[in-house]
Design a protein around this nucleic acid. Structure first.
Lengths: 307, 307
DNA sequence: CTGATGGTATTCATTTTTGAATAGCTTCTC
DNA sequence: GAGAAGCTATTCAAAAATGAATACCATCAG
């Protein structure tokens, strides 16, 4: 019995992801006939079909979908291996992949990483911005900036500190609609919030109401601008759309953003930098990790009222 | 830039594991020249050597060793994928890989699994026996029998119960050397123990001394027969070599094995059956999981004094 | 209805990969 | 010191995988 070529798994995944032989082949730098042959060979090896062919693409069967997680793991591992492999080991060069939330990635990381790259010009940074927690054990990223204390073993973690979330609005908005001076004042204002409520948001709402009993019920507020992206919420705050949530560290940098009711509303948010411990010995990850810890600590320090 | 073929990683790993092109090729069903060409191609793609060639094989460079963990993950994932893929999905057929300690795998599992296979003749069982905890998240096994409460998420776990470890000896040994009736009596006896002390053993020793203050210090006992394998320890107990540690459930099955000082010495040992939650829907894993839980619960029940 | 776009299947020449055979080296055993 | 066993490197013919070209089908916009 001949074992199955791993390359077949790769094109299988590409076809599965893209939904067609042509697109999958394009992603892989192959041609459509070879992609077709790979899928065919895999199906022959397994003894059952993985896709139902049609003129507008290939629809995966249940069996194919069941295999997808494995193929995804293969892909992320191979990508991590290639990242690790490229770049001389003694030098600080090659690729480091960082996972962070979109706000951090857009508002906070650029200057930190720019300075790092100034120092190490051969270092390439891959930034993966999403609130989905990428799995460091599965090597979907090398280093992650997390908002939860990482309990998993095999990870190196450094606590940055608490960068709380506060309520903010632009000065222009406040000039027109007035500054809320008590929780009750909030009821008349326009609020920027989430569009669809994820499980995380829901959980936070509950925690939130429990923590801040003087705060009006969230349902009673006027959520007049709803968008899921935190960055887009921030943009809305800056544009004077209304009052929204935002990390105090980010808001503090913009002189026109004003914190609302700082004594009443404050949602703590722990920040951690986390890395797989296998990477600890690699110079480039170590340096990047240290730079992130340092840079984020500086950022966290800005957060505290210091003036 | 052309991406690296995943098959190169596979032969890279085989060569790394076996230490030579020839042996690696043999494992993979290839020939030595192709294995050599694969390694060469990988080195060319990365831009640095992975092995130093010699007449007696290939010695890996540091860079190669750094890449090994990734390749191992690839291999175990690909193996899991193939296991998952073979066997029709509606039927109970294909391969299930179980990880267990050697004692459990040799003394307890055979009848359970035999009954399961009687019922499902197309089911193939792979047993991986070691005390090394195989990682279910990394798919090194499908189902594991663990002695610790599995804290990781993404796992389905069922608690079996407490199957404590007790001191045991063969009747023949006791006839000749006498039955210890108090902890102090133990000092004159011959003991069967571990050869090299692992971190786990050391930790258990500490816990042990703390739990059983009336027990003599372990250093004072006469460890006259030392062997790391638990199965070999059991064999030694059965051969009348001396007094040794053994799961009470296993010992109870052999009428000639006598428990020593049951009221004084008892080391609790929790048992769990654990599985990756992705496999919950697969019929063959579900069935095997259930059979293991049922069979081990029966085994645990035997343990309790019931006569 | 027509043309553009994007998909699969098939054919065939070309390129690439592979294996068998062989030479040459080292180590170990008798 | 002879011989066996195990290894790498190289050569060359055979086998396998690939890509370009093409036919053909579905969908959508105008």
């Amino acid at each position: 019995m001949n074992t199955i070529s791993w390359d077949l798994y790769r094109t299988f995944l590409a076809v599965l992801r893209t939904g067609s032989l042509s697109a999958g082949a394009r992603d892989l730098g192959l041609t459509q006939p070879t992609a077709g042959r790979h899928v065919e060979a895999l199906e022959r090896a397994l003894g059952y079909p993985l896709f139902t062919r049609s003129q507008q693409g290939l629809r995966p069967t249940d069996a194919a979908l069941a295999l997808q997680p494995y193929a995804e793991t293969l892909a992320s591992t191979a990508a991590a291996m290639e990242r690790h492999a490229t770049g001389a080991s003694g030098d600080i060069s090659g690729v480091v992949r960082i996972s962070a939330s979109d706000v951090i990635g857009i508002e906070v990381l650029p200057p930190i990483l720019a300075a790092l790259q100034d120092e190490h010009p051969h270092l390439t940074i891959e930034l993966s911005l999403s609130d989905a927690v990428e799995d460091l054990l599965r090597r979907e990223a090398d280093i992650a900036i997390r908002m939860t204390n990482p309990a998993q073993e095999a990870l190196v973690a450094q606590r940055i500190g608490n960068v709380p979330i506060g309520l903010h609005a632009h000065q222009r908005y406040l000039d027109r609609y007035g500054m809320p001076l008590s929780p009750a004042d909030l009821k008349g204002h326009r609020f920027i919030g989430f569009d669809r409520k994820t499980a995380f948001i829901r959980a936070m709402e509950v925690r939130f109401q429990a923590m801040m009993p003087t705060f009006p019920a969230l349902d009673e507020l006027n959520w007049s601008y709803r968008i899921d992206s935190n960055v887009a919420q921030l943009a809305a705050i800056r544009a004077g759309v209304g009052i929204g949530f935002c990390q105090t560290g980010v808001a503090r940098r913009d002189p026109d953003l004003v914190r609302i009711l700082p004594d009443v509303f404050e949602l703590p948010l722990e920040t951690w930098v986390v890395m797989h411990e296998n990477l600890r010995r690699g110079l480039r990850w170590r340096k990047t990790f240290d730079a992130l810890v340092q840079g984020l600590r500086d950022y966290a320090r800005e957060t505290r009222p210091q003036d």
